[in-house]
């Protein structure tokens, strides 16, 4: 399958008064047409910046993509002029943002906001775009869509607004949808509906999508592959099933442990990952997760590990960890049965 998107060694930095924040520090990945990918990580790990970089929506200044290539359909987005990039935005690549409360313009009607991209990219006139907008709103499950065209965002609930955002993203039949925490701001009951909608529509239109979230539970049934990000790096790449069955990075273990389980006895406490995410102005010299890692050895503080294929796993499973690499001391550790997790790490 030819790659739809190929990101090579992407570096996005923010030039602040306190120093250069290396928000995305050498991220590479590929995505085939119609494929679905989850990018998981905690706040500030660079996942949203990665997504914004793909569309060149990083506010500049202070942000800048300093290095790398983003090949979309074989062409480098970073080498395009502004007109070409605008031709892609909302057209071949569309984005769904986190907070539907603030991501829609409060003073414009829903139809105005959905039809904008249709008129811009598909050259529809007002009538055609209105008709298409009704179809799109019906597609995303907005009841009596026709009568709600001229309503404003504040007349919609949060879940309905996110449906509008999805309709907007789908409007020009994009090849790739970037969904940046699309359900984080929504009620739990609505989250599942929105995720199902997204998954089904993407499947129906054979749209590739990247789902960005801090919640491993969200990506579980949603994407074919998962990349775990930490401190501006991708620290683990695997098939979704493989990642849950056989995770190979202590950070991923930490994420999995911090998911509350229904079958857990009441006496067991939630186990958070101790410590704070790394300072991306002056990141740790070795492994970025080392300061919080309970399995670390001297080498972890000294030399940064590479993202490489791990033993005892599927072929395309990669991890950025000295311990789980060939010859490491964690290659056979099973995070579920490991008892060392109960010892507290010095922060």
């Amino acid at each position: 399958m030819p790659e739809l998107l190929e990101v090579r060694d992407l570096h996005t930095q923010f030039f602040t008064r306190d120093g250069i924040v290396r928000a995305v520090d050498g991220v590479s990945f590929t995505l085939a047409a119609g494929e679905t990918l989850g990018i998981v990580g905690e706040s500030g790990c660079g996942k949203s910046v990665t997504a914004l970089s793909l569309m060149r929506l990083i506010p500049q200044p202070p942000g800048k993509i300093t290095q790398g290539e983003i090949l979309f359909d074989g062409r480098d987005v970073l080498k395009m002029d502004d007109d070409e990039v605008r031709g892609i935005r909302g057209n071949a690549i569309a984005m769904i943002f986190q907070d539907p409360m603030t991501s829609l313009n409060p003073v414009l009607t829903i139809s105005r906001q959905v039809s904008e991209a249709l008129e811009l990219h598909l050259k529809m006139d007002r009538n055609e775009s209105r008709k298409r907008t009704i179809e799109l709103l019906e597609l995303v499950g907005i009841p009596s869509a026709k009568s709600r065209l001229d309503d404003y965002p504040h007349q919609f609930s949060g879940g309905m607004r996110q449906r509008v955002m999805i309709a907007m993203a789908l409007s020009c039949n994009p090849k790739l949808i970037l969904a940046d925490e699309p359900t984080t701001a929504l009620d739990v009951t609505i989250q599942a509906q929105i995720l199902d909608l997204l998954k089904n529509l993407a499947r129906e239109f054979r749209t590739a999508f990247i789902l960005i979230t801090h919640d491993l539970g969200v990506v579980a049934g949603m994407t074919q592959r998962i990349h775990v990000m930490y401190g501006g790096h991708i620290v683990e790449k695997a098939d979704t099933n493989e990642l849950f069955a056989n995770p190979k990075h202590p950070y991923t273990w930490g994420l999995l442990r911090s998911i509350p389980r229904l079958d857990q006895t009441r006496r067991e406490k939630l186990r958070p990952i101790e410590g704070l995410p790394p300072d991306l102005i002056a990141p740790p010299p070795g492994c970025r997760f080392a300061p919080r890692c309970q399995y670390k050895r001297d080498i972890c503080d000294e030399k940064p590990p590479e993202l490489v294929a791990v033993p005892n796993a599927k072929a395309d499973h990669e991890s950025r960890c000295w311990g789980t690499q060939t010859g490491g001391w964690l290659t056979t550790t099973d995070w579920r049965t490991d008892t060392t997790v109960f010892t507290k790490v010095e922060a």
Binding site: G87, R89, G90, A94, L104, A117
Partner: peptide, 9 residues
């Protein structure tokens, strides 16, 4: 919403 508008091209 300004970022949303930009993301539409």
């Amino acid at each position: 919403f300004v970022r949303t508008a930009r993301s539409k091209g």
